[in-house]
Write a protein that binds this DNA or RNA. Structure first.
Length: 417
RNA sequence: GUGGCUAUAGCUCAGUUUGGUUAGAGCGCCAGGUUGUGGCCCUGGAGGCCGUGGGUUCAAGUCCCACUAGCCACCCCA
């Protein structure tokens, strides 16, 4: 076989492209109305950035990154998520010099070396939003309301917002210790992975899908019991604001997210429509990340939505299949020359015009016009050219009218083409 | 990274069990049925290194192995 695309990297073909444009355009519109500015950061970053922000122990960093040495010997990585790069750009360009909050969004490809399946690619695309320098619960709520609003605008149904709070540096260690104490006596029933997680990240044990682990987790302490006063208050406020905004949600005290930098609010938008790939989007608060990357203490929160997964949930719409406003069917050499010129003139007026370059029968040209979805066909032969009047056929109802050739532009503009 | 299923025309799939003439269908495509009129209908036509490479055999789309890719589950996540 000839050269194939790299595994897990897909071509976006013309029939699918309008859906993507719709998703991206709607997202930009919604993000814009919430005051988000676009930022575009490089796909390549120093490996260190991801190792330090996402966490060395996470699956992403430990086994999923596209990492390589460039020609100067620097270790570079193709971004597996957007937040780290955005935060890096925020610091490097000293965007914090202006008072916050800073609302930034970005749309683009991410890369993770995983085993591909439906809704999971090695190059995939995210709609990503971050609010930097915002500590209050209204920041969390605003972001979630915006995401819910976008899903609604897109017409994506059957998506549930699942919420949890992971606590802060104040209360999470207490909970971690409680968990470790609880599981310590029950290690025997845990899977191999979980026994390892117990030391590194005991919260993940709660998230394990193995039967034995699930059973043991049932009796485990819940993080909701360990929240410090301010974390509990923060979470209550977020929930209150969501309810006030009519955003429905569920809470799940076992929801844990894979990235180390999350604090307090963590969330996922889940669907039952995509099999094992049930997350359409996710995110959370990361109050410590900016400081950990060497910046000023800057509380922040963000989310990402997967474009491919959204596309899978969207039906095609008829308005995405628009055809040309006019097809010129020319019969004979002279009419074809005339049509070529007329087409350019109409196009200059912003009208989508097609014609066929080859000297084929009228029947073949009509078939082609029909296939392209042309709204009208102008039929021009030698007689019409001489008379300066040609039949214009409406392809929807089959009706034909005689139109003076010098009035085409006006006629089409009047028809809203 | 682990396990399972799959790969035949542009698309969806028969044919593989029990190896044996020119590998089929539907849809799509092209042309004709109308000296210059699309969609529906009828007729005809084009289009296939049967994923790639190796092996078994007189003979492989069919059996065996490897590779590649897709799908499903695990893992994890968008």
């Amino acid at each position: 076989m000839a050269i194939q695309a790299v595994r897990g990297m897909k071509d976006l073909l013309p029939p699918e492209a309008p859906k993507w444009r719709f998703i991206e355009a709607t997202a930009r519109e919604v993000f814009g109305s919430f005051g988000f500015s676009e930022i575009r950061t490089p796909i390549l970053e120093r490996t260190e950035l991801f190792a330090r922000s996402i966490g060395e122990e996470t699956d992403i960093v430990s086994k999923e990154m596209y990492t390589f040495e460039d020609r100067s010997g620097d270790s570079l990585t193709m971004r597996p998520e957007a937040t780290a790069g955005v935060v890096r750009a925020f610091l490097e360009n000293k965007l914090y010099a202006v008072p916050g909050p800073h609302k930034l969004c970005t749309i683009g490809p991410m890369f993770r070396h995983e085993r591909p399946q439906k809704g999971r690619l090695r190059q995939f695309h995210q709609l990503d939003c971050e609010i930097l320098d915002d500590a209050g619960p209204q920041g969390d709520a605003e972001l979630l309301v915006m995401a819910a609003h976008l899903l609604e605008r897109l017409g994506v149904r059957q998506v549930t917002l699942v919420l949890n709070s992971l606590g802060c540096p104040e209360c999470r260690p207490v909970f971690k210790q409680q968990l470790q104490d609880y599981f310590a006596g029950r290690q025997g029933g845990l899977c191999e992975d979980c026994r390892r997680r117990l030391a590194t990240n005991p919260l993940r044990v709660l998230d394990c899908k193995q039967e034995g682990c699930k059973e043991i987790s049932l009796g485990a302490p819940l993080i909701s019991g360990s929240w410090c006063e301010s974390c509990g208050e923060h979470f209550d406020q977020v929930k209150r604001l969501l309810t006030q905004s009519s955003v429905t949600f569920e809470t799940d005290p076992k929801l844990v997210r894979g990235l180390d930098y999350y604090t307090r609010t963590a969330f996922e938008f889940k669907t039952t429509q995509l099999g094992a790939q049930d997350a359409v989007g996710g995110g959370g608060r990361y109050d410590g990340l900016v400081e950990a990357l060497g910046g000023p203490a800057t509380p922040a929160i963000g989310f990402a939505l997967g474009v491919e997964r959204l596309a899978l949930l969207l039906e095609d719409r008829p308005e995405w299949q628009q055809g040309p406003s006019l097809f010129i069917a020319a019969l004979g050499d002279e009419p074809r020359d005339w049509a070529f010129g007329a087409a350019q003139e109409l196009r200059r007026a912003g009208i989508w015009v097609e014609m066929s370059a080859a000297a084929t029968s009228l029947k073949a040209q009509m078939r082609r016009a029909n296939k392209l979805g042309a709204s009208r066909v102008l039929i021009v032969g030698g007689e019409e050219l001489k008379a300066g009047i040609a039949p214009l056929k409406d392809m929807a109802n089959g009706e034909q009218e005689d139109l003076p050739l010098d009035q085409i532009v006006d006629r089409l503009k009047a028809a809203g083409a």
